[in-house]
Write a protein that binds this DNA or RNA. Structure first.
Lengths: 241, 241
DNA sequence: AGAGATTGCTAACGCCGTTAACTTTTGGGA
DNA sequence: TCCCAAAAGTTAACGGCGTTAGCAATCTCT
Protein backbone atom coordinates (compact mmCIF):
# COMPACT_ATOMS: atom_id res chain seq x y z
CA UNK A 1 0.00 0.00 0.00
CA UNK A 2 1.28 3.51 -0.78
CA UNK A 3 1.93 5.85 2.10
CA UNK A 4 -1.00 8.09 2.80
CA UNK A 5 -0.36 11.46 1.14
CA UNK A 6 -0.43 14.21 3.68
CA UNK A 7 3.06 15.08 4.76
CA UNK A 8 4.98 17.57 2.73
CA UNK A 9 7.30 15.03 1.18
CA UNK A 10 4.49 12.58 0.70
CA UNK A 11 2.59 15.19 -1.15
CA UNK A 12 5.54 15.88 -3.35
CA UNK A 13 5.91 12.22 -4.22
CA UNK A 14 2.28 12.13 -5.10
CA UNK A 15 2.61 15.08 -7.36
CA UNK A 16 5.59 13.53 -9.09
CA UNK A 17 3.62 10.38 -9.64
CA UNK A 18 0.77 12.35 -11.12
CA UNK A 19 3.17 14.13 -13.39
CA UNK A 20 4.44 10.78 -14.60
CA UNK A 21 0.87 9.65 -15.18
CA UNK A 22 0.21 12.82 -17.12
CA UNK A 23 3.36 12.42 -19.20
CA UNK A 24 2.36 8.88 -20.09
CA UNK A 25 -1.00 10.05 -21.34
CA UNK A 26 0.56 12.99 -23.13
CA UNK A 27 3.01 10.70 -24.90
CA UNK A 28 0.33 8.18 -25.75
CA UNK A 29 -1.83 10.87 -27.23
CA UNK A 30 1.04 12.22 -29.29
CA UNK A 31 1.65 8.77 -30.71
CA UNK A 32 -2.07 8.41 -31.40
CA UNK A 33 -2.14 11.67 -33.30
CA UNK A 34 1.11 11.24 -35.18
CA UNK A 35 1.07 7.53 -36.03
CA UNK A 36 -2.45 6.26 -35.42
CA UNK A 37 -4.05 4.09 -32.77
CA UNK A 38 -1.88 1.05 -33.51
CA UNK A 39 1.20 3.03 -32.49
CA UNK A 40 -0.04 3.69 -28.97
CA UNK A 41 2.00 0.87 -27.53
CA UNK A 42 3.56 0.37 -24.14
CA UNK A 43 7.02 -0.07 -25.59
CA UNK A 44 6.71 2.98 -27.82
CA UNK A 45 5.48 5.17 -24.98
CA UNK A 46 8.31 3.94 -22.75
CA UNK A 47 10.81 4.56 -25.54
CA UNK A 48 9.63 8.13 -25.96
CA UNK A 49 9.94 8.66 -22.21
CA UNK A 50 13.41 7.10 -22.01
CA UNK A 51 12.04 4.21 -20.03
CA UNK A 52 11.45 0.52 -20.50
CA UNK A 53 8.05 -0.99 -21.02
CA UNK A 54 7.82 -2.94 -17.74
CA UNK A 55 8.38 0.31 -15.88
CA UNK A 56 5.02 1.54 -17.07
CA UNK A 57 3.37 -1.25 -15.15
CA UNK A 58 4.05 0.79 -12.01
CA UNK A 59 1.41 3.21 -13.35
CA UNK A 60 -1.02 1.10 -15.29
CA UNK A 61 -1.78 -2.54 -14.65
CA UNK A 62 -2.11 -3.32 -18.34
CA UNK A 63 -2.12 -1.74 -21.78
CA UNK A 64 -5.90 -1.72 -21.78
CA UNK A 65 -6.00 0.37 -18.60
CA UNK A 66 -3.66 2.92 -20.13
CA UNK A 67 -5.87 3.26 -23.21
CA UNK A 68 -8.91 3.55 -20.98
CA UNK A 69 -7.28 6.33 -18.98
CA UNK A 70 -6.41 8.07 -22.23
CA UNK A 71 -9.99 7.94 -23.49
CA UNK A 72 -11.22 9.15 -20.12
CA UNK A 73 -8.95 12.18 -20.25
CA UNK A 74 -10.06 12.86 -23.81
CA UNK A 75 -13.69 12.78 -22.71
CA UNK A 76 -12.77 15.34 -20.07
CA UNK A 77 -11.07 17.58 -22.59
CA UNK A 78 -14.03 17.32 -24.94
CA UNK A 79 -16.45 18.10 -22.13
CA UNK A 80 -14.41 21.15 -21.12
CA UNK A 81 -14.27 22.34 -24.74
CA UNK A 82 -18.02 22.00 -25.10
CA UNK A 83 -18.61 23.77 -21.81
CA UNK A 84 -16.41 26.64 -22.93
CA UNK A 85 -18.33 26.97 -26.18
CA UNK A 86 -21.57 26.90 -24.25
CA UNK A 87 -20.40 29.61 -21.89
CA UNK A 88 -19.59 31.95 -24.74
CA UNK A 89 -23.32 32.60 -24.85
CA UNK A 90 -25.56 33.82 -22.05
CA UNK A 91 -27.41 31.23 -20.04
CA UNK A 92 -30.58 33.06 -20.95
CA UNK A 93 -30.28 31.71 -24.48
CA UNK A 94 -29.91 27.95 -24.14
CA UNK A 95 -30.70 27.55 -27.81
CA UNK A 96 -27.63 29.49 -28.84
CA UNK A 97 -25.66 27.65 -26.19
CA UNK A 98 -26.66 24.26 -27.53
CA UNK A 99 -25.99 25.31 -31.10
CA UNK A 100 -22.53 26.47 -30.12
CA UNK A 101 -21.85 23.23 -28.27
CA UNK A 102 -22.93 21.16 -31.27
CA UNK A 103 -20.70 23.10 -33.62
CA UNK A 104 -17.85 22.86 -31.16
CA UNK A 105 -18.28 19.09 -31.07
CA UNK A 106 -17.83 18.95 -34.83
CA UNK A 107 -14.92 21.36 -34.75
CA UNK A 108 -13.14 19.33 -32.08
CA UNK A 109 -13.79 16.08 -33.92
CA UNK A 110 -12.41 17.40 -37.18
CA UNK A 111 -9.42 18.91 -35.45
CA UNK A 112 -8.71 15.70 -33.52
CA UNK A 113 -9.96 12.88 -35.75
CA UNK A 114 -7.79 10.21 -34.14
CA UNK A 115 -9.00 11.15 -30.69
CA UNK A 116 -12.60 11.21 -31.90
CA UNK A 117 -12.14 7.78 -33.42
CA UNK A 118 -10.78 6.43 -30.15
CA UNK A 119 -13.78 7.76 -28.27
CA UNK A 120 -16.61 7.11 -30.67
CA UNK A 121 -15.69 4.25 -32.98
CA UNK A 122 -15.87 1.37 -30.60
CA UNK A 123 -18.07 -1.49 -31.66
CA UNK A 124 -18.27 -3.71 -28.61
CA UNK A 125 -15.28 -2.58 -26.60
CA UNK A 126 -16.35 -4.68 -23.70
CA UNK A 127 -19.45 -5.01 -21.67
CA UNK A 128 -18.02 -2.23 -19.54
CA UNK A 129 -20.75 0.15 -20.60
CA UNK A 130 -23.74 -1.63 -19.21
CA UNK A 131 -27.16 -0.46 -20.43
CA UNK A 132 -27.72 1.39 -17.19
CA UNK A 133 -24.28 3.00 -17.28
CA UNK A 134 -23.30 4.76 -14.13
CA UNK A 135 -23.08 8.52 -13.99
CA UNK A 136 -19.38 7.98 -13.41
CA UNK A 137 -18.99 6.74 -16.95
CA UNK A 138 -16.38 8.99 -18.57
CA UNK A 139 -18.65 9.56 -21.54
CA UNK A 140 -21.31 10.89 -19.23
CA UNK A 141 -19.23 13.93 -18.34
CA UNK A 142 -19.36 14.77 -22.03
CA UNK A 143 -22.90 13.69 -22.84
CA UNK A 144 -24.25 15.31 -19.74
CA UNK A 145 -23.41 18.77 -21.04
CA UNK A 146 -25.57 18.33 -24.10
CA UNK A 147 -28.31 16.71 -22.07
CA UNK A 148 -28.40 19.50 -19.51
CA UNK A 149 -28.64 22.07 -22.25
CA UNK A 150 -31.53 20.21 -23.78
CA UNK A 151 -33.23 20.24 -20.39
CA UNK A 152 -32.74 24.00 -20.16
CA UNK A 153 -34.25 24.28 -23.58
CA UNK A 154 -37.23 22.24 -22.53
CA UNK A 155 -37.81 24.34 -19.41
CA UNK A 156 -38.30 27.50 -21.39
CA UNK A 157 -39.12 26.07 -24.73
CA UNK A 158 -41.91 24.67 -26.71
CA UNK A 159 -40.98 21.08 -27.35
CA UNK A 160 -43.96 19.19 -28.60
CA UNK A 161 -43.49 15.68 -27.28
CA UNK A 162 -44.36 12.77 -29.54
CA UNK A 163 -47.35 10.58 -28.83
CA UNK A 164 -47.57 6.85 -28.56
CA UNK A 165 -44.25 6.28 -26.87
CA UNK A 166 -43.22 2.66 -26.85
CA UNK A 167 -43.88 1.44 -23.29
CA UNK A 168 -40.78 -0.76 -23.44
CA UNK A 169 -38.70 2.41 -23.30
CA UNK A 170 -40.08 3.94 -20.17
CA UNK A 171 -37.93 1.83 -17.87
CA UNK A 172 -34.69 2.90 -19.49
CA UNK A 173 -35.77 6.49 -19.96
CA UNK A 174 -36.61 6.73 -16.29
CA UNK A 175 -33.06 5.70 -15.49
CA UNK A 176 -31.76 8.56 -17.58
CA UNK A 177 -34.14 10.93 -15.88
CA UNK A 178 -32.70 10.05 -12.50
CA UNK A 179 -29.37 11.45 -13.56
CA UNK A 180 -30.90 14.87 -14.13
CA UNK A 181 -31.26 17.44 -11.43
CA UNK A 182 -34.25 19.63 -10.83
CA UNK A 183 -37.84 19.02 -11.70
CA UNK A 184 -38.54 15.72 -13.45
CA UNK A 185 -38.48 15.83 -17.21
CA UNK A 186 -41.31 14.09 -19.05
CA UNK A 187 -40.27 10.83 -20.62
CA UNK A 188 -41.50 12.00 -23.99
CA UNK A 189 -39.10 14.91 -23.80
CA UNK A 190 -36.23 12.62 -22.91
CA UNK A 191 -37.12 10.64 -25.98
CA UNK A 192 -36.72 13.79 -28.06
CA UNK A 193 -33.34 14.36 -26.42
CA UNK A 194 -32.13 10.90 -27.30
CA UNK A 195 -33.31 11.25 -30.85
CA UNK A 196 -31.47 14.56 -31.19
CA UNK A 197 -28.31 13.12 -29.71
CA UNK A 198 -28.47 10.25 -32.18
CA UNK A 199 -28.77 12.71 -35.01
CA UNK A 200 -25.94 14.89 -33.78
CA UNK A 201 -23.63 11.92 -33.30
CA UNK A 202 -24.44 10.69 -36.78
CA UNK A 203 -23.83 14.04 -38.39
CA UNK A 204 -20.38 14.28 -36.86
CA UNK A 205 -19.37 10.65 -37.22
CA UNK A 206 -20.36 10.31 -40.86
CA UNK A 207 -18.07 13.18 -41.68
CA UNK A 208 -15.11 12.36 -39.44
CA UNK A 209 -15.10 8.71 -40.44
CA UNK A 210 -14.91 9.75 -44.08
CA UNK A 211 -18.26 8.45 -45.24
CA UNK A 212 -19.07 11.68 -47.01
CA UNK A 213 -15.72 11.95 -48.76
CA UNK A 214 -17.17 10.36 -51.86
CA UNK A 215 -19.42 13.37 -52.34
CA UNK A 216 -18.40 16.43 -50.41
CA UNK A 217 -15.21 18.28 -49.69
CA UNK A 218 -16.79 20.62 -47.19
CA UNK A 219 -19.77 19.15 -45.36
CA UNK A 220 -19.93 22.20 -43.11
CA UNK A 221 -23.14 23.65 -44.51
CA UNK A 222 -24.75 20.22 -44.32
CA UNK A 223 -23.85 20.03 -40.66
CA UNK A 224 -25.19 23.51 -40.02
CA UNK A 225 -28.46 22.48 -41.58
CA UNK A 226 -28.60 19.46 -39.32
CA UNK A 227 -27.97 21.57 -36.23
CA UNK A 228 -30.72 23.97 -37.25
CA UNK A 229 -33.02 20.99 -37.70
CA UNK A 230 -32.14 19.69 -34.25
CA UNK A 231 -32.74 23.07 -32.64
CA UNK A 232 -36.05 23.36 -34.40
CA UNK A 233 -37.03 19.94 -33.09
CA UNK A 234 -36.15 21.17 -29.61
CA UNK A 235 -38.45 24.15 -29.99
CA UNK A 236 -35.91 26.79 -30.87
CA UNK A 237 -37.64 29.05 -33.39
CA UNK A 238 -34.67 30.60 -35.13
CA UNK A 239 -31.08 29.41 -35.38
CA UNK A 240 -28.47 30.85 -33.06
CA UNK A 241 -25.00 31.66 -34.30
CA UNK B 1 3.48 -15.68 -64.15
CA UNK B 2 0.70 -18.24 -63.67
CA UNK B 3 -0.32 -20.38 -66.59
CA UNK B 4 -3.15 -18.82 -68.53
CA UNK B 5 -6.41 -20.38 -67.31
CA UNK B 6 -8.18 -22.08 -70.17
CA UNK B 7 -7.11 -25.68 -70.32
CA UNK B 8 -9.10 -28.10 -68.27
CA UNK B 9 -6.33 -28.63 -65.75
CA UNK B 10 -5.55 -24.98 -65.61
CA UNK B 11 -9.10 -24.22 -64.78
CA UNK B 12 -9.21 -26.76 -62.01
CA UNK B 13 -6.06 -25.39 -60.45
CA UNK B 14 -7.59 -21.97 -60.58
CA UNK B 15 -10.71 -23.15 -58.85
CA UNK B 16 -8.71 -24.78 -56.08
CA UNK B 17 -6.86 -21.55 -55.54
CA UNK B 18 -10.10 -19.64 -55.33
CA UNK B 19 -11.41 -22.11 -52.82
CA UNK B 20 -8.34 -21.49 -50.69
CA UNK B 21 -8.87 -17.76 -50.99
CA UNK B 22 -12.47 -18.22 -49.93
CA UNK B 23 -11.53 -20.39 -46.97
CA UNK B 24 -9.04 -17.79 -45.80
CA UNK B 25 -11.71 -15.11 -45.81
CA UNK B 26 -14.21 -17.45 -44.21
CA UNK B 27 -11.78 -18.25 -41.41
CA UNK B 28 -10.83 -14.62 -40.95
CA UNK B 29 -14.43 -13.63 -40.67
CA UNK B 30 -15.13 -16.35 -38.14
CA UNK B 31 -12.27 -15.08 -36.00
CA UNK B 32 -13.57 -11.53 -36.37
CA UNK B 33 -17.01 -12.55 -35.20
CA UNK B 34 -15.93 -14.86 -32.40
CA UNK B 35 -12.94 -13.01 -30.95
CA UNK B 36 -12.98 -9.49 -32.31
CA UNK B 37 -10.93 -7.62 -34.89
CA UNK B 38 -7.64 -8.03 -33.01
CA UNK B 39 -7.90 -11.80 -33.43
CA UNK B 40 -7.95 -11.70 -37.23
CA UNK B 41 -4.28 -12.50 -37.47
CA UNK B 42 -2.26 -14.31 -40.11
CA UNK B 43 -0.98 -16.87 -37.63
CA UNK B 44 -4.44 -17.51 -36.19
CA UNK B 45 -5.99 -17.96 -39.62
CA UNK B 46 -3.20 -20.29 -40.65
CA UNK B 47 -3.57 -22.24 -37.41
CA UNK B 48 -7.29 -22.70 -38.02
CA UNK B 49 -6.55 -23.93 -41.53
CA UNK B 50 -3.79 -26.32 -40.42
CA UNK B 51 -1.19 -24.23 -42.16
CA UNK B 52 1.70 -22.03 -41.22
CA UNK B 53 1.56 -18.28 -41.45
CA UNK B 54 4.10 -17.81 -44.26
CA UNK B 55 2.00 -20.08 -46.44
CA UNK B 56 -0.71 -17.43 -46.52
CA UNK B 57 1.68 -15.14 -48.34
CA UNK B 58 1.00 -17.24 -51.45
CA UNK B 59 -2.48 -15.71 -51.37
CA UNK B 60 -2.10 -12.27 -49.87
CA UNK B 61 0.99 -10.11 -50.05
CA UNK B 62 0.48 -8.78 -46.53
CA UNK B 63 -1.89 -8.82 -43.59
CA UNK B 64 -3.35 -5.52 -44.70
CA UNK B 65 -4.31 -6.97 -48.08
CA UNK B 66 -6.12 -9.85 -46.43
CA UNK B 67 -8.13 -7.48 -44.25
CA UNK B 68 -8.89 -5.36 -47.29
CA UNK B 69 -10.14 -8.39 -49.19
CA UNK B 70 -12.28 -9.31 -46.19
CA UNK B 71 -13.88 -5.88 -46.04
CA UNK B 72 -14.44 -5.96 -49.77
CA UNK B 73 -16.28 -9.26 -49.54
CA UNK B 74 -18.33 -7.92 -46.64
CA UNK B 75 -19.33 -4.91 -48.73
CA UNK B 76 -20.46 -7.35 -51.39
CA UNK B 77 -22.50 -9.36 -48.94
CA UNK B 78 -24.10 -6.22 -47.55
CA UNK B 79 -24.90 -4.98 -51.04
CA UNK B 80 -26.48 -8.30 -51.94
CA UNK B 81 -28.51 -8.29 -48.73
CA UNK B 82 -29.78 -4.79 -49.42
CA UNK B 83 -30.60 -5.68 -53.00
CA UNK B 84 -32.58 -8.68 -51.84
CA UNK B 85 -34.56 -6.54 -49.39
CA UNK B 86 -35.17 -4.03 -52.14
CA UNK B 87 -36.42 -6.71 -54.51
CA UNK B 88 -38.98 -7.93 -52.03
CA UNK B 89 -41.03 -4.94 -53.14
CA UNK B 90 -42.15 -4.07 -56.66
CA UNK B 91 -39.99 -1.66 -58.61
CA UNK B 92 -43.09 0.47 -59.04
CA UNK B 93 -42.81 1.46 -55.39
CA UNK B 94 -39.27 2.74 -54.89
CA UNK B 95 -40.31 4.32 -51.61
CA UNK B 96 -41.12 0.95 -50.10
CA UNK B 97 -37.99 -0.44 -51.67
CA UNK B 98 -35.79 2.20 -50.08
CA UNK B 99 -37.51 1.81 -46.73
CA UNK B 100 -36.90 -1.92 -46.84
CA UNK B 101 -33.25 -1.40 -47.79
CA UNK B 102 -32.74 1.03 -44.92
CA UNK B 103 -34.25 -1.34 -42.41
CA UNK B 104 -32.23 -4.19 -43.83
CA UNK B 105 -29.07 -2.15 -43.36
CA UNK B 106 -29.87 -1.77 -39.67
CA UNK B 107 -30.82 -5.41 -39.34
CA UNK B 108 -27.57 -6.57 -40.95
CA UNK B 109 -25.52 -4.19 -38.84
CA UNK B 110 -27.10 -5.38 -35.59
CA UNK B 111 -26.77 -9.00 -36.62
CA UNK B 112 -23.13 -8.53 -37.64
CA UNK B 113 -21.76 -5.78 -35.41
CA UNK B 114 -18.13 -6.80 -35.80
CA UNK B 115 -18.42 -6.78 -39.56
CA UNK B 116 -20.20 -3.44 -39.48
CA UNK B 117 -17.46 -2.04 -37.31
CA UNK B 118 -14.82 -3.24 -39.73
CA UNK B 119 -16.59 -1.56 -42.61
CA UNK B 120 -17.81 1.66 -41.07
CA UNK B 121 -15.65 2.56 -38.08
CA UNK B 122 -12.50 3.57 -39.83
CA UNK B 123 -11.17 6.99 -38.96
CA UNK B 124 -8.44 7.64 -41.48
CA UNK B 125 -7.66 4.13 -42.67
CA UNK B 126 -5.35 5.49 -45.29
CA UNK B 127 -5.67 7.99 -48.03
CA UNK B 128 -6.90 5.07 -50.14
CA UNK B 129 -10.35 6.58 -50.37
CA UNK B 130 -9.53 9.74 -52.22
CA UNK B 131 -12.21 12.42 -52.33
CA UNK B 132 -13.08 11.46 -55.87
CA UNK B 133 -13.22 7.75 -55.09
CA UNK B 134 -13.48 5.52 -58.11
CA UNK B 135 -16.63 3.62 -58.87
CA UNK B 136 -14.55 0.52 -58.23
CA UNK B 137 -14.39 1.36 -54.57
CA UNK B 138 -15.82 -1.62 -52.71
CA UNK B 139 -18.05 0.65 -50.68
CA UNK B 140 -19.58 1.95 -53.86
CA UNK B 141 -21.18 -1.40 -54.63
CA UNK B 142 -23.04 -0.96 -51.37
CA UNK B 143 -23.70 2.76 -51.44
CA UNK B 144 -24.74 2.63 -55.06
CA UNK B 145 -27.81 0.60 -54.21
CA UNK B 146 -29.18 3.26 -51.89
CA UNK B 147 -28.22 6.00 -54.29
CA UNK B 148 -29.93 4.35 -57.25
CA UNK B 149 -33.08 3.92 -55.20
CA UNK B 150 -33.01 7.57 -54.30
CA UNK B 151 -32.70 8.39 -57.98
CA UNK B 152 -35.73 6.25 -58.74
CA UNK B 153 -37.58 8.09 -56.03
CA UNK B 154 -36.61 11.41 -57.50
CA UNK B 155 -37.75 10.40 -60.99
CA UNK B 156 -41.29 9.79 -59.85
CA UNK B 157 -41.33 11.79 -56.69
CA UNK B 158 -41.76 15.21 -55.40
CA UNK B 159 -38.44 16.12 -53.87
CA UNK B 160 -38.30 19.81 -53.22
CA UNK B 161 -34.67 20.71 -53.65
CA UNK B 162 -33.14 23.20 -51.27
CA UNK B 163 -32.17 26.65 -52.40
CA UNK B 164 -28.92 28.48 -52.02
CA UNK B 165 -26.64 25.52 -52.55
CA UNK B 166 -23.07 26.24 -51.58
CA UNK B 167 -21.21 26.70 -54.87
CA UNK B 168 -18.13 25.01 -53.42
CA UNK B 169 -20.05 21.74 -53.52
CA UNK B 170 -20.98 21.67 -57.16
CA UNK B 171 -17.64 20.30 -58.28
CA UNK B 172 -17.82 17.29 -55.98
CA UNK B 173 -21.51 16.72 -56.55
CA UNK B 174 -20.96 16.63 -60.28
CA UNK B 175 -18.47 13.86 -59.78
CA UNK B 176 -21.07 11.82 -57.97
CA UNK B 177 -23.56 12.54 -60.73
CA UNK B 178 -21.24 11.04 -63.31
CA UNK B 179 -21.50 7.69 -61.60
CA UNK B 180 -25.25 7.62 -62.14
CA UNK B 181 -26.84 6.27 -65.28
CA UNK B 182 -29.73 7.79 -67.13
CA UNK B 183 -30.81 11.37 -67.22
CA UNK B 184 -28.72 13.78 -65.19
CA UNK B 185 -29.90 14.38 -61.67
CA UNK B 186 -30.02 17.98 -60.46
CA UNK B 187 -27.23 18.82 -58.08
CA UNK B 188 -29.72 20.00 -55.50
CA UNK B 189 -31.30 16.57 -55.50
CA UNK B 190 -27.93 14.92 -55.05
CA UNK B 191 -27.46 17.16 -52.07
CA UNK B 192 -30.66 15.77 -50.61
CA UNK B 193 -29.37 12.26 -51.25
CA UNK B 194 -26.13 12.93 -49.43
CA UNK B 195 -27.95 14.46 -46.51
CA UNK B 196 -30.25 11.44 -46.27
CA UNK B 197 -27.32 9.04 -46.46
CA UNK B 198 -25.61 10.93 -43.67
CA UNK B 199 -28.69 10.61 -41.55
CA UNK B 200 -29.14 6.94 -42.28
CA UNK B 201 -25.52 6.16 -41.51
CA UNK B 202 -25.77 8.07 -38.26
CA UNK B 203 -28.93 6.34 -37.18
CA UNK B 204 -27.36 2.92 -37.67
CA UNK B 205 -23.90 3.74 -36.36
CA UNK B 206 -25.06 5.44 -33.18
CA UNK B 207 -26.92 2.30 -32.26
CA UNK B 208 -24.42 -0.33 -33.35
CA UNK B 209 -21.51 1.47 -31.72
CA UNK B 210 -23.41 1.51 -28.47
CA UNK B 211 -23.92 5.23 -28.09
CA UNK B 212 -27.57 4.83 -27.26
CA UNK B 213 -27.05 2.13 -24.67
CA UNK B 214 -27.14 4.68 -21.90
CA UNK B 215 -30.75 5.38 -22.67
CA UNK B 216 -32.47 2.74 -24.74
CA UNK B 217 -32.65 -1.00 -24.82
CA UNK B 218 -34.57 -1.15 -28.07
CA UNK B 219 -33.89 1.77 -30.40
CA UNK B 220 -35.95 0.13 -33.12
CA UNK B 221 -38.89 2.57 -33.01
CA UNK B 222 -36.45 5.46 -33.02
CA UNK B 223 -34.86 4.08 -36.15
CA UNK B 224 -38.23 3.57 -37.79
CA UNK B 225 -39.04 7.18 -37.09
CA UNK B 226 -35.79 8.24 -38.72
CA UNK B 227 -36.50 6.17 -41.81
CA UNK B 228 -39.94 7.69 -42.10
CA UNK B 229 -38.36 11.11 -41.80
CA UNK B 230 -35.88 10.28 -44.54
CA UNK B 231 -38.58 8.99 -46.85
CA UNK B 232 -40.62 12.10 -46.23
CA UNK B 233 -37.63 14.24 -47.12
CA UNK B 234 -37.35 12.26 -50.33
CA UNK B 235 -40.95 13.03 -51.20
CA UNK B 236 -42.57 9.79 -50.13
CA UNK B 237 -45.94 10.82 -48.70
CA UNK B 238 -46.67 7.85 -46.43
CA UNK B 239 -44.32 5.29 -44.94
CA UNK B 240 -43.90 1.92 -46.59
CA UNK B 241 -43.67 -1.24 -44.56
C1' DA C 1 20.92 5.10 10.15
C1' DG C 2 17.95 1.67 8.91
C1' DA C 3 13.33 -0.38 7.40
C1' DG C 4 10.12 -0.45 3.98
C1' DA C 5 7.82 1.26 0.15
C1' DT C 6 8.50 3.08 -4.53
C1' DT C 7 10.52 3.03 -9.02
C1' DG C 8 13.01 1.42 -12.43
C1' DC C 9 15.81 -2.21 -14.67
C1' DT C 10 17.07 -6.87 -17.24
C1' DA C 11 15.73 -11.37 -18.86
C1' DA C 12 12.46 -14.14 -20.61
C1' DC C 13 7.92 -16.08 -22.53
C1' DG C 14 4.65 -16.45 -26.23
C1' DC C 15 2.28 -13.88 -29.58
C1' DC C 16 2.47 -11.07 -33.90
C1' DG C 17 3.94 -9.77 -39.23
C1' DT C 18 7.37 -10.67 -42.38
C1' DT C 19 11.35 -12.55 -45.07
C1' DA C 20 14.54 -16.04 -46.87
C1' DA C 21 15.63 -20.47 -48.23
C1' DC C 22 14.14 -25.06 -48.49
C1' DT C 23 11.13 -29.13 -49.84
C1' DT C 24 7.19 -31.25 -51.83
C1' DT C 25 3.60 -31.64 -54.99
C1' DT C 26 1.66 -31.13 -59.41
C1' DG C 27 0.50 -30.23 -64.22
C1' DG C 28 1.73 -30.08 -69.00
C1' DG C 29 4.91 -30.54 -72.92
C1' DA C 30 8.88 -33.32 -75.15
C1' DT D 1 6.38 -41.72 -70.21
C1' DC D 2 9.62 -38.71 -68.23
C1' DC D 3 11.14 -34.23 -66.87
C1' DC D 4 11.00 -29.75 -65.33
C1' DA D 5 9.25 -25.59 -63.95
C1' DA D 6 5.71 -23.46 -61.39
C1' DA D 7 2.78 -23.63 -57.36
C1' DA D 8 2.11 -24.50 -52.51
C1' DG D 9 3.72 -25.15 -48.19
C1' DT D 10 7.45 -25.87 -44.90
C1' DT D 11 11.15 -24.41 -41.19
C1' DA D 12 14.18 -20.86 -39.26
C1' DA D 13 14.85 -16.43 -38.10
C1' DC D 14 14.26 -11.19 -37.26
C1' DG D 15 12.29 -7.42 -34.70
C1' DG D 16 8.24 -5.66 -32.20
C1' DC D 17 4.48 -6.43 -29.12
C1' DG D 18 2.18 -7.27 -24.02
C1' DT D 19 3.33 -9.27 -19.91
C1' DT D 20 5.67 -11.51 -15.84
C1' DA D 21 9.40 -12.52 -12.53
C1' DG D 22 13.15 -11.15 -10.09
C1' DC D 23 16.54 -7.76 -8.85
C1' DA D 24 18.79 -3.19 -7.87
C1' DA D 25 18.44 1.51 -6.68
C1' DT D 26 16.23 5.31 -4.56
C1' DC D 27 13.38 7.73 -1.68
C1' DT D 28 10.51 8.47 2.80
C1' DC D 29 9.56 8.15 7.28
C1' DT D 30 10.88 6.72 11.97
Amino acid sequence: MPSTPGTSTGRRRHRVREEALAEILRTGRRLLVEEGPAAVTLRAIAREMNMTAPGLYRYYAAHRDLIQALTSSLYDELAATLAAARDRHPASEPGRQLGAACRELRRWALEHPQEFGLLFAKPLTDADTAPGAAAHDPSWRFGGILLELMVQLWRRGSIQPPTGLDPAWTVQLEEVREHLDGEPVPLEVIYVFVSCWARLYGAVAVEVFGHLDFALTDPGPLFDHTVRDILTTLGEPSPGS
